[in-house]
Design a protein around this nucleic acid. Structure first.
Length: 427
RNA sequence: GGGCAGGUUCCAGAGCGGCCAAAUGGGGCGGACUGUAAAUCCGCUGUCUACGACUUCAGAGGUUCGAAUCCUCUCCUGCCCA
């Protein structure tokens, strides 16, 4: 099975330019994906593009990861309702380094290999180009009519928030990246999310007109959940690849909570399992969906891929303890080191021992630890039966928190709702 | 530069002098049912020293017993004309 066929059955091909498949069969081809340096870590939304590069490299082609130091300064208007805020140079540099470090975990950068991955930063070439140079040498190849005909632009023109010239320019800037990589690195293919299609095509167009060359493109579908909402956010916001930002436990939890329907798609996209194995898994899952085989497999594979085997083990242990029923007694029986090991990835909050000396009302306790945003919220949550302490439901809003509740003399496990846990450490 | 339409609580969007902490929808968060799923149903969704008090309707002033609602100026956005 060739690369494109492989990606097709996984559901990772949305649009593809004619000739792309042939090009990939013909020779080792260099291809790139761009990453936005909006934060110093990638999040799971970037996982699909990363996987595209990994598949590409496994198929013997050469991946380029482009970090958008320059484009990050402009901001892509594609399908966004509003212009985004710009980042300053220092932040950008910091973010690029973080992203680079992460990509190195997934791609093989060993220069000894002919298809070693490479990292490039478009700021490196854009910093040399003056505005006048750009509009004379590049801008004149593309008409405004052409640029305006892009869906992403049209949508913004029709909307009521307008679009700045800066944003309008974005597709040309990105197109130039492709042109540059084409001429400098013989890079003939750009991949990305389907929202990038318009920008990518502008690049191939520029290559055709300015370099008289032929370049290719394909995009993968933008992931959506079956209910149509956007993919990649948890209750606490973005799910990051950086374990400091999203612990492996929470990362694992994110995937394990996937719905049946989504899991069937995700397993193909996010794991490297083969077609047969996946079909068997899905069949087994349908036999007894309550076992959540698919979700668990998905979560395991991804946690290993991103964080490694050891971290997965911890995540599994914690999940097992926290989500089994009748664990109140188990909890009491754990030693301190067992407890800490298991709770490693659970969000932790600290409280001064003196605070609990005389006992503290639970409303203040929940609000001051930021487990809930305010006392009012805490009150409602308890009245709605949404709070547990050490796996035991709190029934009354006048409950006092004091030292008698401490596990191993210094911990309290607070649960908000069904699956939000907090380990309170008393110091 | 001129004209017009707007800026309301997370979002959309009502309200147009007291009954407004502000309709309705969405989202979010809880609960029930389950399988840490979906669907469904129920509750909550400004803060607090909580049957009451306090701070909100772009900003600053003003009119009034009383304003999100009226007036003045400012800022911002969109559309149209130049």
């Amino acid at each position: 099975m060739n690369l494109i066929e492989e990606l097709r059955w996984r559901g990772m091909v949305q649009d593809i330019m004619p000739g792309t498949e042939e090009q990939l069969l013909k020779e080792m081809t260099s291809a790139y994906v761009g990453f936005d340096p909006t934060a110093d870590s990638l999040h799971i939304g970037s996982l699909v593009p990363i996987l595209l590069l990994v598949h590409l490299q496994r198929a013997g082609h050469k991946p380029f990861a482009l970090v958008g130091g320059a484009t990050g300064m402009v901001g892509d208007p594609s399908f966004k309702a509003e212009e985004r805020k710009m980042l300053d140079l220092d932040t950008l540099a910091h973010n690029q380094n973080g992203i680079k470090a992460q990509l190195e975990k997934f791609l093989d950068f060993d220069p000894a290999k002919p298809n070693a991955a490479e990292m490039v930063n478009n700021f490196d070439w854009f910093k040399e180009i003056s505005f006048l140079d750009f509009i004379r040498d590049t801008g004149k190849h593309i008409t405004v009519n052409y640029m305006m005909s892009k869906d992403s632009v049209k949508r913004r023109l029709e909307g009521d928030s307008g679009m700045s010239f800066t944003e309008f320019t974005y597709q040309l800037i990105q197109g130039y990246d492709f042109y540059h990589l084409y001429t400098a690195k013989n890079c003939k293919l750009q991949m990305g999310g389907s929202d990038q299609w318009g920008n990518i095509v502008t690049g191939t167009e520029l290559i055709r007109r300015k370099a008289n060359g032929e370049a290719f493109a394909f995009t993968c579908p933008l992931l959506k959940k079956a209910d149509g909402t956007k993919f990649g956010k948890s209750e606490r916001g973005n799910v990051w690849l950086d374990p400091q930002k999203t612990s492996p436990y929470l990362f694992y939890q994110f995937w394990v909570k996937t719905t049946d329907e989504d899991a069937k798609n995700y397993i193909k996209i996010f794991t490297f399992l083969g077609q047969e194995e996946i079909n068997e898994l899905i069949a087994a899952h349908d036999q007894d969906a309550g076992k959540r085989l698919l979700q668990k497999k998905l979560a395991e594979e991804l946690t290993v891929f991103v964080h490694g085997q050891t971290e997965l083990e911890f995540a599994l242990k914690a999940s097992d303890l926290l989500f089994r029923n009748d664990t109140a007694e188990v909890l009491q029986s754990l030693t301190e080191s067992q407890l800490l090991e298991i709770m490693d990835g659970v969000p932790q909050v600290e409280v001064a021992a003196a605070e609990l000396e005389a006992g503290k009302d639970i409303l203040s306790f929940l609000a001051e630890t930021n487990i809930l945003p305010s006392k009012g919220e805490a009150r409602k949550m308890i009245q709605n039966n949404g709070i547990s302490i050490n796996k035991v439901k709190v029934g009354a809003i006048d409950k006092m928190i004091d030292k008698s509740l401490l596990l191993n003399d210094k911990y309290i496990l607070v649960q908000r709702g069904k699956n939000n846990y907090f380990l309170v450490i008393v110091k």
